[in-house]
Each structure stands twice: as structure tokens, then as C-alpha cells.
Design a protein around this nucleic acid. Structure first.
Length: 156
DNA sequence: GCCAACGTTGGC
DNA sequence: GCCAACGTTGGC
């Protein structure tokens, strides 16, 4: 992969927040159970790519920091865990699962959250997927210019 | 807590 | 392979 790619990855802060990642330093990004998001996670992402950490289902939702992809695709451990809400009964006992995870490393927390309403209003961010109605994908590609602009707003 | 938008499942 | 029913996401 010649050039770095950029992503936006959603998490509900009650489940896992940027503060949790700052504390942990590194964390498997798991529990992805949507095929389109899985395909990005498994096939398109590359080590060294940067991602916006986005807090969803909170007031207000928005981008809160940056993290880096630091592993290749790995089998999602939660798919094997019968006690997990992400357990997949179709996952095989011999270690085969269709679900993958990536190790993500904390890079930085923004000085301030860039809210969804700001993402929608900023003319430089026009066309950003997360601002589109009905866009629920929890892992989305982000254009480099958009990524830079969100960082600029957050690092104020 | 509501509900629109979507994805998945399963009967036929 | 269609599509209605159901489940989930996530903004509001």
C-alpha cells in the first residue's frame, strides 16, 4: 500500500471511550458484526493507517481523537466467547470465524470534541460519510483532506 | 425513549 | 429469489 488511508471508527463511550484507549494504549477493535465494516477491517485497512475515534450514541456525538492501526486482521476473539454479546454460534470450534479484529493504538485525544453538527456544517467537510443521513456504518473510509480538517478543528 | 434507516432472516 | 418481519444502530 503506497499511501496511508484514513478511517472513522465509531464506539459508544459507555462501551469503550477515547479515555479508555488513552489509558490502555492499545486495544483490539472487535465486535464488528456488519459485513461491509468487516470487509474494510479485514481487506482494505493497512498497518499505519490513521483513524478518527468517534463517540456515537452520546450527547453530542462527534470525533474525539486519533488512533493508529497497528496489526493485520486477526480472528475476533469475542466470536468464540459464549458469554459475549458478540458470540457467533456459527463460528467453528476449530478456530474458524468470519469476523476479524485489529489492534488499535492511541495517538492523541483532541483538545475538544468535533461534534457531528460541526462535521455537517463545515463546508470543507462536505460529502463526509458520517454526516450523511442514514449512514450507520461503524467503520468508514475518510478522505485525507477531511481527516486533516477534522484534526485542525479538534486540535484548536 | 422514540423512531427512521438499514441489514438480516426465514417462509414461501 | 422475493419480501415481510424483525433486530440493530444511532441521532434526536
Amino acid at each position: 500500500m503506497a499511501t496511508k488511508q484514513y478511517w472513522l471508527m465509531k464506539s459508544e463511550p459507555d462501551a469503550y471511550s477515547i479515555e479508555d484507549l488513552e489509558r490502555d494504549g492499545r486495544e483490539p477493535w472487535d465486535g464488528i458484526r456488519n459485513y461491509q465494516a468487516r470487509n474494510f477491517l479485514r481487506d482494505t485497512m493497512a498497518e499505519g493507517d490513521l483513524a478518527l475515534f468517534y463517540h456515537s450514541n452520546t450527547k453530542p456525538p462527534g470525533a474525539v481523537g486519533v488512533m493508529e492501526v497497528v496489526s493485520g486482521p486477526e480472528p475476533d476473539a469475542l466470536a468464540f466467547d459464549e458469554n459475549s454479546k458478540y458470540y457467533d454460534p456459527k463460528t467453528e470450534a476449530d478456530g474458524e470465524t468470519v469476523w476479524v479484529q485489529r489492534q488499535m493504538k492511541f495517538v492523541r485525544k483532541f483538545a475538544r470534541k468535533v461534534s457531528l453538527s460541526e462535521l455537517k456544517e463545515d463546508p470543507e467537510l462536505e460529502g463526509m460519510l458520517v454526516a450523511k443521513k442514514g449512514q450507520r456504518l461503524s467503520i468508514q473510509p475518510v478522505e485525507e483532506a477531511h481527516f486533516r480538517r477534522v484534526c485542525e478543528l479538534g486540535d484548536d
